[in-house]
Design a protein around this nucleic acid. Sequence first.
DNA 1: TCGGATAAACTACACCGGGTAGTTTCTAAG
DNA 2: CTTAGAAACTACCCGGTGTAGTTTATCCGA
Lengths: 215, 215
Amino acid sequence: MATTGGAAGRPEKRKAITQAAMVVFGREGYVRASMDAIAAEAGVSKRTVYNHFADKETLFLSVALQNSAELTEKIRELMAKYLDRVVDLRQDLVDFAVERARAVLSAGEHGALGRAIRAEVANIPPDVLEAWLEAGPIASMRDLAAHFEALAERGLLAVEDAGLAAEQYTLLTFHGIAERSFWGALPVADEEVVRIATVGVDAFLRIHGGPAARG
Amino acid sequence: MATTGGAAGRPEKRKAITQAAMVVFGREGYVRASMDAIAAEAGVSKRTVYNHFADKETLFLSVALQNSAELTEKIRELMAKYLDRVVDLRQDLVDFAVERARAVLSAGEHGALGRAIRAEVANIPPDVLEAWLEAGPIASMRDLAAHFEALAERGLLAVEDAGLAAEQYTLLTFHGIAERSFWGALPVADEEVVRIATVGVDAFLRIHGGPAARG
DNA sequence: TCGGATAAACTACACCGGGTAGTTTCTAAG
DNA sequence: CTTAGAAACTACCCGGTGTAGTTTATCCGA
């Protein structure tokens, strides 16, 4: 019987499998990826893969959730680094936008799986999709909103709806690049990332710039 | 020999095939879609499909380009309707945003194929991808920029870079919904579309509102 | 205007090669 | 005795081709 959910078997093998699954699913997408390829990438027999995960779909969804949580954590660290102790608001907002774009879209790593999920959205069970959103994009948005709230209390931003501000910041500084690079599938020049982030922050500050930021 | 490029065979059959291909590719995605399913959907034998299109990839790319051009034309009409003779700027910008979102994301139709392309971007020949972008998103952006330019000359908008304004308008009024619905894969309540468009336009006018729009 | 000949296009169906998910069997090692 | 590895096996589906027969459009002669 496959130990689909709980931790079973050698943990390091399981880790190797999930890591390999992220790589292969991210590179090939769900449909194209084969269990043989994942087993090979993990340096493990296919039997072992099926000992840890019931089937292809279970493996994919499991890895997707894990990846989503990891990325959220990484972004959370970036926020702590750039938005906790703000001195130069505009510069810090630009730096965070750039680093986030790099973290999500830089070749292969975290964003690739997100692309696979977006491609498969119609075939993902609603509750799993919900969980993925909650652990990923929604969580990041909440974190960002909390930071904006704090900045607003310091008078650096003028926001009545921090959630809305977080969304608009993300749209203006990130989604343009994400769309242009097709969520990391195509490379984007780093100067382009910086340029878009800068322009986006300026626009954002026009909307939500606080008293201290208004000319 | 397959008559891949030129018009050959019965035109109505060819039309039925491209139409069916749009439906099936849009619903299943490139990899999952089978040529059998497309032939069945078209009410045509599989051999006929291969008489009109050399192979699956050719059919997909051909249909993608056609679809892209059609959608661009549809959006162009919406711009003509809402942005040619503007009287109430804010209302017209909202109306256009809502109608565009409906046109692109409404269940199944035009946006579905775009999703398939975004999923396959890594496997699409660069020159074809370029052509798709040029006939689709880039063309629409240019059209919108031209309209903004005209509005700026009337003093309704304050834009120095109309292209940038067009992008920001699109981000603020459209991409939020597109991302939330995964480009039409999941349904979105119409009130939500209207709400996001309205909020987006207000933000946009904070950035680029012209003299006549400033309080 | 009509009726059949002709050629192109289409259909139905079997078929091939290749690839995949998932299972099983057997073997080795800790 | 438990766990994993290797590899073969099953059952299936897909892209694409070959073929033989059928439909459809076009044209030509009376």
